[in-house]
């Protein structure tokens, strides 16, 4: 991880370039998901009825709960950067830990949500999907599993980065004059939030 690299070489530390490097990485992520959004838009345009039907299958309540969860977690990690700047190390550690737990709650929700789909025989390549669904519905659920799955993977990676950020805070390697690891951890987490902000209406709300 590049941030860890910076932490180990104090003389080469540069907060500005760390941040720009993180943004460049975020751009690649935005375009990765951007391409998936374009695929979604085209398939939706070609199969409006099927997407309408398939969208009804998704649980709005779970989707909304997960949105609220993710927005709150975005606030707590943003507050952690403020805490560090104010020199309140323990508050920062607590806030990142809280964010980690909230991220876990998101994944638990996702687990149950996917579990319900699986119990209805809906998973990529399932018999039910292949035999009883229209082409458009198969496309919808294919995109649903790929996009929310890829998003969940980003949640897991974000939580892993948080572990490193907390370790840095505890060991004193991340402090008010060297906040990049925590700042970039926050940026990554906000990216995950940003992607969900678009996934949520496209899959759960638009019927």
């Amino acid at each position: 991880m590049e941030h860890a690299h910076h932490v180990e070489h104090p003389d080469m530390y540069d907060a500005e370039s760390s941040k720009v490097g993180m943004w460049l990485f975020i751009f690649t992520e935005l375009l990765l998901f951007g391409a998936l959004f374009v695929i979604y838009a085209v398939y939706r345009y070609m199969n409006p009825e099927a997407f309408h039907l398939a969208g009804e299958e998704l649980n709005r309540v779970i989707g909304t709960v997960n949105t609220v969860i993710l927005l709150i977690s975005s606030m707590t990690i943003a507050m952690a950067t403020t805490a560090l700047q104010k020199g309140q190390r323990n508050v920062a550690i607590a806030l990142v830990s809280v964010t980690f737990v909230i991220g876990l709650a998101f994944l638990v929700n996702k687990y149950f949500e996917w579990g319900v789909k699986f119990s209805h025989g809906i998973w990529p390549g399932s018999e039910h999907m292949m035999n009883e669904m229209s082409h458009g519905e198969v496309l919808f659920f294919g995109l649903y599993f790929v996009m929310t799955g890829l998003h969940a993977l980003h949640i897991i990676i974000g939580m892993a980065i948080m572990v490193f950020a907390v370790r840095g805070l505890v060991r004193g390697k991340v402090h008010p004059d060297r906040p990049s690891l925590l700042d970039n951890c926050g940026l990554y987490w906000h990216l995950v939030d940003l992607i969900w902000i678009f996934l949520f209406p496209l899959f759960y709300l638009i019927h």
Partner: peptide, 21 residues
């Protein structure tokens, strides 16, 4: 519906980018 949902998402992402990020 699609336009309305996207409009709200765009406003939300603007807030996240400007303040959280």
């Amino acid at each position: 519906t699609v336009a309305a949902a996207l409009l709200f998402a765009i406003v939300k992402s603007y807030l996240v980018l400007n303040y959280f990020m």
